[in-house]
Nucleic acid binder design. Structure first.
Lengths: 390, 390
DNA sequence: CTGAAAGCGCTTACAG
DNA sequence: CTGAAAGCGCTTACAG
């Protein structure tokens, strides 16, 4: 009396009848095996199950194994050079397993609509990239029991929802340590959104590096703004206009770093001669900027790859290895950072080698040829709450 | 005796029985309506159909209207800044209609596998972006009867498969006419793959503009290569090393144009002072290059949008308006093009205004702020085989 | 643990 | 054009 008419039967007529004949049991018994009744002997059940799967019988309501499996990946928008890299990572990981990826944005449809959609599709799970989740969204996600993984959520998510990001704090710390090692003692920051997880972590990494170097934190040369170009420009104009301006600025994103470059231009400062600029992200534009930007590289493609792996792990009913995974960043040195004007030797604070002399400061860096970039350090390793992964 | 057990029935038990009661007919009659037998009176049929849809009855084998509709979009790979724009166009157009987009690459799965996958998903259709289709692929596409639309196919496809691209020929012609109007008479070309549709069209647009200006075509300053940076660089080194080198080079892609810039650097030529460089594509990197590149802009996002519209049009069973649609390109002027050194007045060939004086040659162009770019001309209009669209 | 028997929802050949 | 009747594939309450 339950779900028998609600069928998604696969084939033919007397399929169960035929199986009953072949198994040498009655149709009743086959029917009980199909409905997973317990009043069937183990040997009989095994024999019938074997025949059922041999004949490709699909239980009513059960997912047809011939039906392609899917996952859904939604983005705040599909702009920004990092987006494509994340998509590529997700699609590559899914493709290897023959799983389809439905790609969408939260522009036309809300997160809870996407959640419904994913369920309607019978998707294995949902990846939500760089979005703000309301309490309501989080509640629904937990209620739906659909596997969900967040990439770089803007706010700290419930611990019931696994999230993946990068080592923002230590990546920022490495970057600023490098500037310190080059001899800079006056370092500003075009910081990101103070209320975003990543923005706060990068700011604190910056502060940690200063503190370790015995440099006082000066709010006059730090501004927290949105991660974009315009805000980065406005913030940088203020920072460079400070009474005691910095010789180096660390930007919390590539877009903001482009704002720093523009502000330097407006102030008549040459980069890196008068001002060293360090960025965070290392998307395509970092290598393309004039001059090419040194930057903390986020492994965007790997973020997508890892998110997919975690999602499919959850979809198999296994618990998440960790509610939070952070992938390592890398410090990539290009021409925008050098020793401060007038400094003849880098003091070498020891945190990381200065190496300013090895950084190419005059040649053009073609973005498709990263061979010339110098990768100085890898932050944090792949960690799950501090534990090494793989 | 045909496909009745192969059900995807939707609900409950006496649904048809209940409808029979409500319609005041026998169950037999309802059954006949469901199976579209012809021996049912029109009035009776209408009454029963009405009740069937009111109760949300889904015919066996018929697509459940509650099931989300999908389209599939496959790319050769998900790299290159244009890819994201095309994806964005497709997703935006689909999102408006509540349709999901499955995104994949032809890296792990062949085109014919994607064709099968699309059918298995019950997708409304398949968009294939910038790929080489074998004869076999084309045959299968036509056989499958699944709606398929090609974006920028590398080879001329069968006329049975609609394709969408841009006005490569007239876009290239406009670009070269502009260089001519600036006063250049010695113009080289880092041309694209000679055997690709787009590459051939761009080369012929270049030749047409030269011919119209009465300038002889000189193969010594033209090289056809792959659309990438390395090939563009090698070709440009040869072109700039010619006995009588050009004062301007037209590149068939942004990546090749970056190769031209690098070759100019290696030859000690300043851009645009010693060499004007014109590009084709106008992806993110064109505006980011040093100096920012003048370029023929391809409407990538619009390509995705239009492809989706055509696909859904086909999916409704309507014939394609045209087997081939070409969207207009735009000429975007930045700092990489100016009058040739020594030329004091532009001769003004009249094809397009020189306007070299209005082009910013010294200020930094922020890619997110295209307001400063100068759009000179729009090529071709939106055409379907020359006929205006929309 | 198994199956004969009754029953359910639906389909169809056939009589009118 | 309609429906009574036979039948099909499957399920389940029940007897053993």
């Amino acid at each position: 009396m339950t779900a028998q008419g609600k069928a998604h039967r696969d084939a033919s007529y007397g399929l169960l009848t035929a199986i009953a004949g072949e198994a040498g049991v009655s149709l009743s018994t086959v029917s009980k095996v199909v409905h997973r009744r317990r009043d069937v002997g183990a040997a009989t059940r095994a024999r019938v199950e074997e025949l059922l799967s041999r004949y490709g019988y699909v239980r009513p309501g059960e997912r047809d194994p011939a039906m392609p499996q899917q996952i859904v990946a939604v983005f705040r928008d599909l702009s920004g050079p990092y987006t494509l890299e994340v998509v590529r990572g997700i699609v590559a990981a899914a493709d290897e397993l023959g799983i389809d990826v439905v790609t969408g944005t939260t522009g036309h449809r809300s997160i809870s609509q996407w959640l419904q959609e994913s369920v309607a599709l019978g998707a294995a799970g949902l990846i939500i990239v760089i979005s703000m989740l309301s309490e309501e969204d989080q509640r629904r996600i937990v209620e739906q029991r659909l596997p969900v993984v967040l990439i770089d959520p803007l706010s700290a998510p419930s611990h019931d929802i696994p999230s993946i990001g990068v080592t923002n704090w230590s990546g920022a710390r490495d970057a600023v340590q490098h500037l310190v090692a080059l001899g800079h003692t006056r370092i500003g920051m075009a910081a990101g959104r103070a209320h975003s997880l990543a923005g706060a972590a990068r700011l604190h990494g910056y502060r940690a590096a200063l503190e370790e170097a015995g440099i006082a934190y000066d709010p006059a040369i730090v501004r927290s703004t949105d991660f974009d170009f315009e805000e980065g420009l406005i913030a940088s104009l203020q920072i460079l206009g400070a009474e005691n301006p910095p010789t180096a600025v660390f930007a919390a994103s590539d877009a903001q770093a482009l704002g720093v470059l523009e502000a330097a231009r407006q102030h008549g400062l040459s980069v890196p001669g008068d001002l060293a600029v360090m960025s965070f992200d290392d998307t395509l534009v970092a290598a393309m900027a004039c001059p090419p930007l040194s930057a903390v590289r986020q492994p965007f493609e790997e973020l997508g790859h890892e998110a997919t792996r975690v999602l499919l792990h959850l979809a198999e009913g296994r618990p998440p290895a960790s509610p939070r995974i952070e992938l390592a960043t890398e410090l990539v040195l290009r021409t925008s950072t050098s020793v401060p004007r007038g400094a003849h030797t880098a003091p070498g604070h020891g945190a990381s080698d200065p190496q300013g002399k090895d950084v190419r400061t005059d040649s053009y860096v073609e973005p498709r040829d990263m061979g010339g970039d110098k990768v100085l350090g890898v932050s944090g390793g792949s960690t799950t709450n501090g534990v090494q992964v793989r």
